[in-house]
């Protein structure tokens, strides 16, 4: 159930994001999802890619600060109130979310999230029959 997400430290200067995507592209690594969190001085790029280990290696070779972070990805219907239902399950069970990002794909949507307590999060989501996306499936998208 655990997804290996790539996190990359970026200074706020032009061309850095472009560089990351070029390095990944030239190594045949595809991106299935990403988000950028930024402050006034720096940003963190979070990526789900086809081959996280390889991506990590090639980026490190290019002097980037990279880490692999465990996240979960759930799939919910692309309709009003669907996300709220899932979030309610988490908050009822005292699971907090550090961050999340999502993208819709027609009828359904994928939500990548980083909870404060991973085990508890997976347990309650499974108990409530929330559809969790397998890593192998997500990397292929």
């Amino acid at each position: 159930m655990l997804i290996k997400q790539l996190s990359i430290f970026l200074e706020n200067k032009s061309g850095r994001l472009n560089e990351v995507s070029q390095i990944l592209g030239s190594n045949g690594i595809n991106m299935s999802a990403f988000s950028v969190a930024d402050t006034s001085e720096f940003g963190i790029l979070r990526l789900i890619v086809s081959d996280p280990e390889l991506a990590c290696k090639v980026l490190r070779e290019n002097q980037f600060s990279v880490s692999l972070t465990d996240v979960v990805c759930l799939n919910c219907p692309n309709e009003p109130g669907a996300l709220a239902k899932t979030l309610e399950i988490l908050s009822d069970n005292k699971v907090s979310i550090a961050y999340l990002y999502a993208y819709s794909m027609g009828d359904s949507a994928n939500v990548v999230l980083k909870p404060d307590q991973m085990e508890q999060c997976i347990k309650v989501l499974q108990a409530n029959k929330v559809d969790l996306v397998k890593a192998s499936e997500l990397y292929k998208i």
């Binding site: 997400q5 969190a37 979070r46 490190r60 880490s67 550090a98 980083k114």
Partner: peptide, 8 residues
Amino acid sequence: EQFFSDEI
């Protein structure tokens, strides 16, 4: 690398 955290 060793002190880079994924969380802002």
